[in-house]
Design a protein around this nucleic acid. Structure first.
Length: 426
RNA sequence: GGACGGGUGGCCGAGUGGCUUAAGGCGCACGCCUGGAAAGCGUGUGGGCAUGCGAAUGUCUCGUGGGUUCAAAUCCCACCCCGUCCGCCA
């Protein structure tokens, strides 16, 4: 949620950055919100004067009654005042809820470093590792996986539908080993606290992180209870501190969580959906940080490095790209995507998205901290990043490490976790 | 799912319509006292919104949302959460 106060006095710089998203409707919505905010403050000024009078006179009525005096004239006056307060309060409430509804649909202001431009106009920040060379034609993971007997897309579809993959045997163990490897890395070497959160959350959580109200169609919702399957661990973990005032001394807070992720991918049917490239359910290890505003830029670099370390240890060639404003997520101020090269499909696959949300989510979820000493509570900055998403990482491992005989070599860090060095056709 | 009991400030806890500006205690901060400390004494101590350069003032806030009333922590309605017991259950 935007801080309207920051826009009341012009704020041309922020307007300009908002415009970089390339959606003129956003600026219109902002102007409507500012107009409603002005009306809101007029109503408040008017009704508060009346309430102050009512409080004074009610006290006087109480005094008179105690003394056994008559207060009928004052009560009659106050009946009229109470009616006006009721009417004004109703109007004020209508304006406030309208304003709130609109405000929740306006996206975050892009960071200064974010370039203008639409999807595809990203900036490559760095590349790591060499793409593997083959003396045979590398095959896509759906062939490699099914031949190894570790990936069964047909049976997954029979159980739940297309986009719900089924792993078997060493494939399931590889998946589990990857989760354990990542959690161990981040807790032991990067200082994160492990969290095992609920996999369903209420509506407030999704409003807090920004999936709702705009993107309800992308969520899996359970019917009688109105709970949502988490699309990412970002949702439950960021909301861990919803409605809290944190001690400034405790910042930054760093959490890592494994959860499955459930996404309806509405409107994405048929697009990059082969095999494990785009699925409705996948596993992911997520990093979430709560920081002071002045630290969030440096914290994003740190968090992104933590995610990159996973790929380096898995010996997967990747690149870091900086997303342009037109491709930036609704709540995000700045995002680096990490993409691994996958030799079978011959493409860069997004396996991580590392973002700063500045105070956008913190204002929606009411997560604040108390600066040192005295001072008013202020919104924290939230950041998160996948470290990393499993399904596509599995794709890259199978495709990049495949051998001519159909077997797949595993990177050294996984040997103990999977209890084998090579996946072979049995 | 059913029955009963609860939800008050950072914490404990009093408060069944107006004398409550939410008693009292604990904690915390500052001051006095002291060679220093403890004890003691005194003062202060939540958050949101609005107005204001600020000091400050007003308003809202006793689980949440409605309602009754000139006036609600207190009365009424709905919901949420916690506890205990029962039922069901991995």
């Amino acid at each position: 949620m935007l801080d309207l106060r920051a826009f009341r006095s012009g704020a041309e710089d922020a307007r300009e950055r908002l415009a970089r998203r390339g959606d003129p409707e956003v600026l219109d919505a902002l102007d409507r919100a500012l107009a409603m905010d002005a009306r809101r403050r007029e109503f408040i000024a008017e009704v508060e004067v009346l309430k102050a009078r009512r409080n004074d006179v009610s006290k006087e009525i109480g005094n008179r009654k105690r003394e056994g005096e008559d207060a009928a004239d004052l009560i009659a006056d106050m009946q009229e005042v109470a009616d006006r307060i009721r009417a004004l309060d109703a109007e004020l409430q209508a304006v406030e809820s309208g304003l709130q509804d609109d405000l929740l649909k306006i996206p975050n202001v892009p960071d200064d470093r974010v370039p203008a431009g639409g999807e595809g106009e990203f900036e490559v920040v760095q590349e790591w590792g060499d793409r593997p060379a083959f003396d045979f034609e590398p095959r896509p993971h759906w062939d490699v996986g099914s031949e190894l007997g570790i990936l069964d897309l047909e049976r997954g579809a029979r159980i739940a539908g297309s986009g719900f993959p089924l792993l078997m045997g060493a494939g399931a163990r590889l998946n589990r080993g990857l989760i354990a490897f990542m959690l161990d890395l981040h807790t032991r070497e990067h200082g994160y606290t492990e969290v095992a959160p609920p996999f369903l959350t209420n509506r407030d959580c999704l409003i807090g992180t920004g999936q709702l109200p705009k993107f309800e169609d992308d969520q899996y919702r359970t019917d009688p209870d109105d709970l949502f399957l988490v699309p990412t661990a970002e949702v439950p973990v960021t909301n861990l501190h919803r409605d809290e005032i944190l001690d400034g001394q405790d910042l930054p807070l760093a959490y890592v969580a494994y959860t499955p992720c459930f996404r309806r991918e509405a409107g994405a049917a048929g697009r990059d959906t082969r095999g494990l490239l785009r699925v409705h359910q996948f596993d992911k290890v997520e990093l979430v940080r709560f920081t002071r505003p002045e630290d969030s830029a440096a914290e994003l670099e740190l968090l992104t490095r933590h995610a990159e370390t996973v790929l380096e240890k898995l010996e997967l060639p990747y690149r870091r790209i900086l997303l342009p404003a037109g491709d930036l997520g609704f709540s995000n101020a700045i995002t680096y995507d990490l993409e691994v090269w996958s030799a079978g499909v011959q493409r860069w696959l997004e396996v991580s998205s590392c973002s700063s949300y500045t105070a956008f989510q913190a204002r929606r979820a009411d997560i604040r901290f108390r600066p040192d000493g005295k001072g008013k509570p202020a919104a924290v900055h939230t950041l998160n990043g996948s470290a990393v998403a499993l399904a596509r990482t599995l794709v890259a491992l199978l495709e990049n490490n495949q051998q001519a005989d159909g077997s797949v070599l595993l990177p050294e860090v996984l040997h103990d976790y999977v209890r084998q060095e090579r996946l072979t056709i049995s």
